[in-house]
């Protein structure tokens, strides 16, 4: 396993958000982290990145995962946050330059997102939601990563853009394992081989993604949606 999480607990503003969450991420493919709103999905990723204080432990590729967020990134974990978080006042090129580590693969990024090359001098804040998501992904994908934590990359995007983003992640997942928080079950079905369902800050179910999605009753009871 590339990531082993044991007893992850997060308490924020006096409220317990995660209660001893344990799971593993295999060294290849996409693991979907799903659940209803407020289940603790984003908090799980933030804790793993060191952005939220937590109890419990996690090991990344056999080593204890600890330290500041930047140290975790340097260890090989790429993080694509919820809501893109591009730097609105910086240009596209500046956003990319800021995130560069070692020898960034510009060809890969511009191959995946040719639009970004044409908009290099444009302020990121003036990009569309889809373009901002591309930039958010590109910032991370230009570097060498051993694991990607990707938080709701298709949130609020038009269907055509959702398809593009899913295609990019599918291509990336061929070489880098991804822990993917995603509400769009069609995207989960397309990308994920395994799934983990959080409910009320606890692990409610783990197994194959198809096993979850093919069972309408299970999906409805865990996620509150039919499909």
């Amino acid at each position: 396993m590339i990531l082993d999480v044991a007893g992850l607990g997060v308490r924020l503003s006096g409220l317990d958000i995660l209660h001893g969450v344990s799971f593993s991420v295999p060294p290849s493919g996409v693991t979907a982290l799903v659940g209803r709103n407020g289940a603790g999905k984003t908090t799980t990723l933030r804790a793993l990145m060191g952005l939220s204080p937590y109890s419990g432990s996690a090991s990344f590729d056999g080593s204890v995962l600890s330290g500041r967020p930047d140290q975790r990134v340097l260890a090989g974990i790429g993080y694509v946050p919820e809501d893109r978080c591009v730097f609105a006042g910086l240009t596209v090129l500046e956003n990319l330059r800021l995130a560069e580590r070692g020898r960034p693969d510009h060809d890969l990024v511009y191959g995946l997102f040719p639009e970004l090359r044409d908009r290099g001098e444009q302020k990121a804040g003036s990009l569309s939601g889809g373009q901002q998501q591309m930039l958010s992904l590109a910032r991370v994908l230009q570097n060498t990563n051993r694991l990607l934590l990707v938080d709701e990359p298709t949130k609020g995007l038009a269907p055509r853009v959702v398809t593009s983003v899913a295609a990019v992640l599918e291509r990336v997942a061929a070489s880098v394992p991804i822990l993917l928080v995603e509400q769009n079950l069609a995207v989960v079905r397309r990308l994920a081989s395994s799934a983990l369902v959080l409910s009320g800050g606890r692990v409610a179910w783990t197994g194959g993604a198809d096993d979850l999605l093919d069972d309408a009753d299970l999906t409805k009871s865990l996620l509150g949606v039919g499909h």
Binding site: M49, L51, P69, V73, L98, R101, V140
Partner: peptide, 19 residues
């Protein structure tokens, strides 16, 4: 560049691997 980005969102600068 780091300062300009950090003024916007310091946490995200750190999450991009910058001390």
């Amino acid at each position: 560049l780091i300062v300009r980005a950090g003024v916007e969102n310091r946490e995200m600068v750190s999450a991009l691997g910058i001390d």
